[in-house]
Design a protein around this nucleic acid. Structure first.
Length: 426
RNA sequence: GGAGAGAUGGCUGAGUGGACGAAAGCGCCGGAUUGCUAAUCCGGUAUACGGGUCAAACCGUAUCACGGGUUCGAAUCCCGUUCUCUCCGCCA
């Protein structure tokens, strides 16, 4: 969330930003709530001061002074309790309101509401020309016995699948390839929990429970299945103070991602484009709280994402995501969309976001500069290295041959073990 | 899952109802001193919130895992939660 003081001092900018983002929230009450909070704190502090003084006098007081002091102490206790309750209520309202306000936006982010308002920064790679009718990944997978949708549905329902045969090797290869790249880039790699506490989800900006939620939650617990390792990677530093000279922290994680995809019915539901579970290698960053630092990190993540797809020899474009299409935490966001012949268009394969201090404030992740007083909230960033299912679609569809076989990208062959995936005999 | 022990500042660790934001040591910062890769001595060294200020200084409040309770008063007593450790069970 945004800083309360910042919101109050920049009310018009915040309101304009909400409009650009397509977020409907009445920001106005925040000023009076802020003032109410301040007054309650001032009054509470004064009462607590008297309370301390009163109770401090009691041990030294004479026997006939004591009853009056104790009576006053009791009275003060009640008054303090009342004030504290009021303060709690006001702060809850403030928190609820603040949580609805999205992050401020990079001045260069395109303003718009729809996906189409995002701006293509560049297109890289050759879109393949086929001298035959190209298949989509579902048909290809069927011909090559790579994905078992029927068993997936039977066992877990629509949106689940079994990868089989070379598809399994391809998944492992993609993960290995991404990890190898990230290690070379100086990331600390992790495998993260696939579940996380609701408070961590909330800190990152997810709403774990409720009608519209994208999150699977575990009953009778405060745990939810993670939608991305962004949650668990960001959560690592919850309530931590990091030495500023250790920044940026470059951490990556492999996790499964679980999404209910509520409300997404009918939208690209074919195949493994939109599924309830997939494997992903995610980059995360904690940087110094300066835009120069987080911008630089953001560009680095984007470069790595591009290099990963260039290495796979897949055509893609980079989108500068418009104000209306980014999440609440985002200050700026780029997507990579790979060409997917089966859809006859581009499909999102990665995404990278600079959240500035928006997530850090709620997570309580700060940094301290040695020798300087105080702490500041760090900037956080996240980006996809490889989302396995999406990358697999792009590989299968772009690398398909007239005979239905699929050429394995050269960089993955050492793990897949073959140059080409062909139909099984028999 | 069962039994027990524990959680104190950057770290180690004392503190079992009032004089405790908290001893001591280490670390760190500043200074003094000594001809010697260092030692010694002195001083300082948390964070958040509110007020205050151009900015500081400063003032107040809170914080001894977290949340509640008892009490005039809680690091200290009681309850719950989380986490850590030890032993047992189970298990990959």
């Amino acid at each position: 969330m945004l800083d309360l003081q910042y919101i109050c001092d920049h009310l018009e900018e915040v309101k304009a930003n909400c409009r650009n983002r397509g977020v409907q929230v009445d920001v106005s009450p925040i000023l009076s709530l802020r003032d109410q909070r301040r007054e309650l704190i001032t009054r509470g502090d004064a009462l607590r001061k008297e309370q301390k003084e009163t109770s401090g006098k009691i041990p030294k007081a004479s026997a006939d002074q004591k009853p009056a002091l104790i009576a006053r102490g009791k009275q003060l206790r009640e008054e303090v309790a009342k004030i504290e309750e009021e303060q709690k209520k006001v702060e809850e309202q403030l928190y609820a309101l603040q949580s609805q306000i999205p992050n401020m936006t990079h001045p260069d982010s395109p303003v718009g509401r729809l996906e189409e308002d995002s701006v293509t920064v560049r297109e890289v790679g050759e879109i393949p020309e086929f001298d035959f009718e190209p298949k989509d990944h579902v048909e290809l997978a069927q011909g090559l016995d790579l994905i078992d949708f029927e068993s997936g549905s039977k066992v877990a329902g629509h949106g689940f699948y079994y990868l089989k045969n070379e598809a399994v090797l391809l998944e492992l290869a993609l993960v290995q390839y991404a990890v190898e790249k990230l290690v070379a880039e100086g990331f600390t790699i992790t495998t993260t929990p696939d579940l996380a506490r609701d408070e961590v989800l909330e800190g990152i900006g997810y709403i774990p429970r409720g009608d519209e939620t994208q999150i699977y939650s575990v009953e009778n617990s405060d745990l939810s299945l993670v939608a991305t390792a962004e949650i668990t990677l960001g959560g690592m530093m919850k309530d931590e103070i990091i030495d500023a000279d250790k920044l940026p922290l470059k951490i990556a994680g492999i996790s499964h991602c679980f999404r209910t995809e509520a409300g997404a019915h009918g939208r690209a539901t074919r195949g493994i484009y939109r599924v309830h579970q997939f494997t992903k290698v995610e980059m995360f960053g904690f940087t110094a709280p300066e835009l120069s630092a987080s911008d630089e990190y953001h560009q680095m993540i984007l470069r790595i994402e591009e290099e990963i797809f260039q290495g796979l020899e897949l055509p893609y474009r980079v989108l500068d995501i418009c104000t209306g299409d980014m999440g609440g935490s985002s200050y700026r966001k780029y997507d990579l969309e790979a060409w997917m012949p089966g859809r006859g268009g581009y499909g999102e394969v990665t995404s990278c976001t600079n959240c500035t201090d928006y997530q850090a404030r709620r997570l309580g992740t700060r940094c301290r500069t040695p020798g300087k007083k105080g702490t500041r909230f760090v900037h956080t960033l996240n980006g996809t290295a490889v989302a396995v299912t999406r990358a697999m679609i792009a590989i299968l569809e772009n690398n398909q041959q007239a005979d239905g076989s699929v050429v394995v990208p050269a960089v993955l062959r050492k793990w897949v073990g073959v140059d080409r995936i062909t139909a099984k005999k028999g």
